[in-house]
Design a binder for these strands. Structure first.
Lengths: 208, 208
DNA sequence: TCGTATGTTGTACTCACGGTACAAACCAAG
DNA sequence: CTTGGTTTGTACCGTGAGTACAACATACGA
């Protein structure tokens, strides 16, 4: 099943839009066959079924994200700057592939139930952030927070939901402009927060 | 179909865990019948099908969230304080109903494809935040940002993903303690950001 | 006490779709 | 030509959602 020929792989992308639109359940194998031009029998020859189609498509997306973010994170800058770069990289890839992103949101449940994908999700999205936050504390460019795990999760959420929503809003005319817009908004939030200097001094105590 | 008897409604919750675990697709109507004690024929008498089961369960969750957040937002405090309260409220409800949350993530695609739920999602999660951000600028307790829409989206993502992840980590012994922990982490991020004072002066220019 | 309306449930059915089986054709490479 | 992988059409099977329907329960007003 692994290693399906390049030609088929590229044809398979023709199914992304379909799956994004109707969800995997709403999409019949026959539909996929028609949309991609690959006959059903051939699909089953290479792939283990519907899920494998999704797995292939999303696996690719996740690899692209992990790759781009990996590059962004590997520079010599301080963690704060690299965090900005990572945000930009992740949003850039996401906005370049809106239908894959829509497929991802739409079938998130299935995706997380596919073990290989679940792992890829983690390494593509969450781990780089977590790492960066820790490094930022070491190099002094990011603040020490009380609960690094929870904060990393939130940062991850801020970035990802922004990208996902952007993808869901139908593809834009200029994805890279959008990516820039969104990533500066996200960075602004994540780095500087929303409190005004005036209200910032009131320390939060124990809520509840 | 609307207005199913209270007794059945409460029985239906018995299916939440099941759906959370296996996804709606992985759950047969027969399974739901068995888990809830409501026979299949009766389910179909009241509900329009599998989707309606999900719609009912998630609709309830969303109502609870919208309600709790609504209360939090309605106080006399400044927007910044109310934002903290809203975060706490949303996470509180989410952590109290982990299996509903898991069902929500798992079948997000389906949920957003059910028009009534899509609207409820918006009003429960996104709109209060958006509103609060605008009010914070007016009352001076929150900073004016370049792209309020995108920032609101990110804040929404930060809160929601934190809650969702917490819900996915299996139910905890003390949900309200967890809610407090997570909500203070999220508030810390959203209000104060992560940049250290030292690195904060380097303004971000045009990325890309 | 009946009659009618409304809910409850079991059983049996239909039908769409995912997946499989298989045989025929195709296409290298040796 | 032969051999071994690939490609594809076609026919088929099993599962599970949804439907039909009849029998039964329950309530309630006349």
């Amino acid at each position: 099943m692994r290693k399906l020929p390049a030609k088929l792989a590229s044809q398979l992308y023709g199914a992304a839009e379909l799956i994004a639109e109707r969800g995997l359940d709403g999409t019949k194998i026959e539909d996929i066959a028609e949309a991609t031009g690959i006959p059903k029998a051939t699909i089953y020859y290479h792939l283990d079924g519907k899920n494998a189609v999704l797995e292939f498509l999303l696996g690719d997306l996740l690899d692209m994200i992990a790759g781009a973010v990996g590059v962004a994170v590997a520079s010599e800058e301080n963690a704060r700057t690299r965090l900005e770069a990572a945000v930009q990289a992740q949003l850039g890839v996401m906005l370049e592939h809106p239908s894959l992103c829509r497929a991802l949101v739409g079938d998130l449940g299935r995706a997380t139930r596919l073990p290989e994908l679940a792992a890829a999700l983690r390494t593509a999205f969450y781990e780089p952030i977590e790492q960066l936050l820790a490094e930022g504390v070491s190099d002094g460019s990011l603040r020490q927070v009380a609960d690094p795990g929870a904060v990393a999760l939130s940062v991850f959420g801020a970035i990802t939901v922004a990208g996902l929503s952007a993808a869901v809003e139908g593809p834009s005319a200029d994805p890279s402009a959008d990516a820039a817009r969104f990533s500066s908004a996200v960075s602004e939030l994540v780095l500087d927060g929303l409190a005004t200097p005036g209200s910032r001094d009131q320390r939060r105590g124990e809520p509840l």
